[in-house]
Simulated scan of single mutants.
Amino acid sequence: MSPRAGTAGPASPGSPPPTRTLAFVESPVQLLNVLEWAHAHGLSAPARRPATEDGHRPPDASAGPARDLLTLVVLAPTDPMTRGQLRRMAELARDEGHEVRWEEARGGASAPFQTVGGLAGELRRAERVVMGDPFSRYVQLLLTITKARDLVVVDDGTATMEFTAQLSRGERLVRWHRKGGRPGPRDLLFAPVSAAARRRLAPGAGRGGRRVEVFSSMPIDAVPDGVSVTANRFVWTRARFGPPRVTAGADLVGTSLVETGVVDGDRYLAAVRALAGAHGATRYFAHRRESAEKLHRLAVETGLEVVRPELPLELIARRGPIGRTVLSFPSTVVHTLPLALAGTDVRVAVCDIDPSWLTATASPRAEGFLSGVTGTARDVHRVTGAALPDRTAPRAP
């Protein structure tokens, strides 16, 4: 009897037993990057699948059994768009032969206790733990349970840059757009757990038998001692999708900087309107966290077609069709899209966030961090500010 998808076949005589790997993801991009990591480390155990009409290529059915056992645990959020993308990504993970475990981790007051209790046994048996968001309280709590020798952090967007920098400086793990604010009651209550998780990922964690890896497409300058960095080149994405059909127009990529309280909503819409007019953009790919109210107003005021992608933008762009120019504000995609679209004629262009667009409550770190995201991006073009809103206006109140 052949092994079911998600399990490895019997090991060859004399070969080492497979490593048990447990991966925790809370967003579609995290799941995509776990698949890229698994592909780069040879963890896929492909099952035979028919070809589809959208460019989705079937796995190589001739490949041998997986060396390692990878179980993907989805700590499901409540946002409907994120859940939809995660379900589609889970299908792709199963196509790759990985086991997927869906946890309603936020389905009521008792859900966290049930989720953690149900995963405790798996965590203690796991020899490797992969996580998409080391800032997540859920993940930090799970890290206090596991005894895994190998810990892996895959990209959760540009936050990975801040994570490695904070780790190098020995700081507490705080998301960049919250840094500078006073810890709230929940932060103080959770502080011992967060500190314990940070110690497990701290510089020197590689000593004493534990190894820590960061798998990233982001530029990482500060690498803590005992932490190895592996480059994510989106090899799996390019092998499984595309090449895309490239259209003559331009597409614009949305951001959730308004929703996170970093950028003023009116300034953001004015910038989108100016960019679309200057470059002839017709479509706006919404970020999964953008509010319905903002997107409705944007469609009415700019005339752009708002598209809510069913997969991460790297896969949507690779599958196509995609505009010859892709416009973006500082975000993860200015780093990932050039890699996913390598070998095509698509040009990725980025527009800086002007300081006058920031809200009065934006973190003091916001301006420098966003500038760094743009300045470190490779193979992207910079958009001039000539056609954008007045940059001399005072900062939004």
Score class of each variant (00 low, 15 high):
P80T: 06
M81S: 08
M81Q: 15
M81Y: 14
T82I: 04
G84E: 07
G84R: 12
L86D: 00
R94G: 03
D95N: 14
E96C: 08
E99R: 08
V100L: 00
V100W: 01
R101M: 06
G108N: 10
A109L: 11
F113G: 12
V116R: 04
G117L: 04
L119K: 00
A120C: 08
A120E: 09
G121P: 06
L123K: 02
L123D: 03
R124W: 10
R124C: 09
R125V: 07
A126F: 02
A126Y: 03
E127L: 07
E127P: 13
E127F: 10
R128F: 07
V129I: 10
V129Y: 06
V129H: 03
V130Y: 04
D133L: 00
F135W: 06
S136Y: 03
S136K: 00
R137Q: 07
V139F: 06
Q140D: 01
L142E: 06
L142P: 00
K147N: 09
K147P: 13
D150I: 12
L151P: 02
L151V: 13
L151C: 04
L151H: 01
V152D: 08
V153D: 15
V154L: 09
A159N: 15
T160D: 04
E162A: 14
T164E: 08
G170I: 02
W176K: 08
R178C: 10
K179D: 03
K179C: 15
G180K: 08
G181S: 07
R182M: 05
R182Y: 15
P185A: 15
R186N: 11
L188F: 11
L189A: 07
A191Y: 12
P192T: 12
A197R: 00
L201E: 05
A205T: 11
G208D: 06
G208L: 03
R211W: 09
E213A: 10
E213G: 14
S216T: 09
A222Y: 12
P224T: 12
